[in-house]
Design a protein around this nucleic acid. Sequence first.
DNA 1: AATGAATGAGGATTCATTCAT
DNA 2: CATGAATGAATCCTCATTCAT
Lengths: 200, 200, 200, 200
Amino acid sequence: MPLSDKQIKAMEQKREKILQQAIILFAEQGYESTTIAKVAKASGVSFGSVFTYFENKDQLFYHAVTEPLNTVFKVDLLDFDPEAEDLLNEIKNMIDKHIRIFIEMRTYLQLVVQVIGQHTKFPEPFKELDEFSLEFIQKLILMITNAQRRGILEESEADLTAKAYLGFLLGIRLTFTDYAVSYIWEKLKIPAFQLLYPKR
Amino acid sequence: MPLSDKQIKAMEQKREKILQQAIILFAEQGYESTTIAKVAKASGVSFGSVFTYFENKDQLFYHAVTEPLNTVFKVDLLDFDPEAEDLLNEIKNMIDKHIRIFIEMRTYLQLVVQVIGQHTKFPEPFKELDEFSLEFIQKLILMITNAQRRGILEESEADLTAKAYLGFLLGIRLTFTDYAVSYIWEKLKIPAFQLLYPKR
Amino acid sequence: MPLSDKQIKAMEQKREKILQQAIILFAEQGYESTTIAKVAKASGVSFGSVFTYFENKDQLFYHAVTEPLNTVFKVDLLDFDPEAEDLLNEIKNMIDKHIRIFIEMRTYLQLVVQVIGQHTKFPEPFKELDEFSLEFIQKLILMITNAQRRGILEESEADLTAKAYLGFLLGIRLTFTDYAVSYIWEKLKIPAFQLLYPKR
Amino acid sequence: MPLSDKQIKAMEQKREKILQQAIILFAEQGYESTTIAKVAKASGVSFGSVFTYFENKDQLFYHAVTEPLNTVFKVDLLDFDPEAEDLLNEIKNMIDKHIRIFIEMRTYLQLVVQVIGQHTKFPEPFKELDEFSLEFIQKLILMITNAQRRGILEESEADLTAKAYLGFLLGIRLTFTDYAVSYIWEKLKIPAFQLLYPKR
DNA sequence: AATGAATGAGGATTCATTCAT
DNA sequence: CATGAATGAATCCTCATTCAT
């Protein structure tokens, strides 16, 4: 007897709820301190149900890290055009967008920082993050190179500059831990832009 | 009968050995995955001995975070003079030094990143780090303000710039995870300097 | 999906089994020497299951002391009528009953003796015992006072006599440790009665 | 090199101090909860020294139970004369003395109660207590029999009466736990005497 | 599919005891 | 003799996971 559409929908919602709560708990308490029981309670399901949707704790963690990455995070961070006509403006818009994303996804980024910081402990999820970061860097390099060629940015090693830019984004996430940060982040556009070594 | 000097020395060395191994393990595997047994084995002592030198796992972690901070880290990071005659040179030397420290203390910084990233989980060690970061920022602000006044740096909100600089240092620690980084870091002086918004 | 009646029943029986074995072990070996593993083994369950039914060892001990108290012990010991018509007969029946209870509940009383003897170590269970003993004493005083008024007992401080009577019951539990005591206890009715200072 | 008298004396005092503190701690906290370290601290010596005077924890407990027994306790409790001229007076004096001892040696009796209450756990010290109790009972029987023959006490089974008397002494130790009991105990002479079934 | 009882591996910690100084 | 560092057995408890209902 196949499941009805309504049932499928309900199950998908339940899975999503579990995943969201898992992200929050993993981010705030770390992998070991986050128990399946806590996730279940926060999601309003029995802990047995968590195993219905995720094979085991490892898999739950893996999905907590990779699903937001592959849906929103990746899409939003890569949403800039290295070949844009008005490249200076495109760069400024990109910085604005990136900073906004890093504000909004604070919890998820806490999780990302853990995976990167202890990558030997989390090889599978780290691999996904690493691959994305390479892709991100590649696209940044493209943009930087173009901008240099067009005299918008000073000459520099684009690869290094791109990595420094990514490092900066992650770093400020650590430095401005839980301020009501929105207004501070607004100002962070300036150093972020400086990092790219703009012509004056 | 008090302990002989030789014994005291031996104990201090043993304590140091345990602490060093704890730092490595905590950094690489995190708090929970680092068992007292692992630390003991890595240090070549019985697990019971760990409790001779550290009250409990919590305390061991606390000391793993704070002792390097209060000995080398703090001293080295604060070793610059905001009132120096040749301030431009002082700033460049500072950046050079800071970057070198962040290279050399990779493992320790992995630990720092964890504490900051999950500060609600580690309130006591975080407090120490936070206090130091405030002190560090204060001194940076002083230097930046002086440099702006003397026309070495462009005008900017010194507080924000200082925090961005610290964020950058932490962030590149995450981005350049385990490269043989020395030669890359050499180049990182440039973006680090740009971040401070130098006059051209 | 709620548990079936059969399951609930099975669980109640398991809990009871654990509690009974815990009482025996605590009584014979004391609190610390009674390990959760021993209780589990004696009950035929895994040690993990003990924690399914009792929060921790402390709670298990607490319930081992208080549950028999509140079910059989309390009820049986208080089952006499201080206002009975034929008070002399009522007193003799009471003594008979009390002594029989103290015979039958030997193991439980071993446990009670420990809690009283080391009451600073077991404040919560002791509180329960102490409250019951006050209630018991109160009712005894009532009976003794009535009996004195009706000329069945000689004058004496009822409060003291009541406590002496309770002390006697506990004391013989210690003195006649593990005899096949039934026939001896039969004879103990005489001194128990004398303690109440009967008119001759 | 033989020890000087002064040294020997100092050592004896140290041993005594350790034993006294051990009695207190064993009585109040029980066997397992009393650690060698606690005893050492209370005695003002290093825990290593405890092992200089007592082979191990078991032996320390054994001596804590038996030494007071064989010095003061035994002597004082047996200090009555079953063949005394004025036997009624002798009995009353005996009761008075016994009760006084049970007041004064409260802590030690807490320990005794533990050993009796968990005698399977403490076979060696229990053996000593049991032997003494037999001796005590024997002497009591003698006195009771004589008193009955002389018409001071009513007829009863002397053996049972003697045990009831001992039980009573132990029992009130449990019932009147930590009152400022002296004045209450004074009054306890009456029921204690009644227990022996005196002629009126 | 959902529930939660049962299990036992694993880990922190305590503490008696040994033994070098 | 006195001291206390070192050791590891033993214990409580947590928690992922399995599986019967």
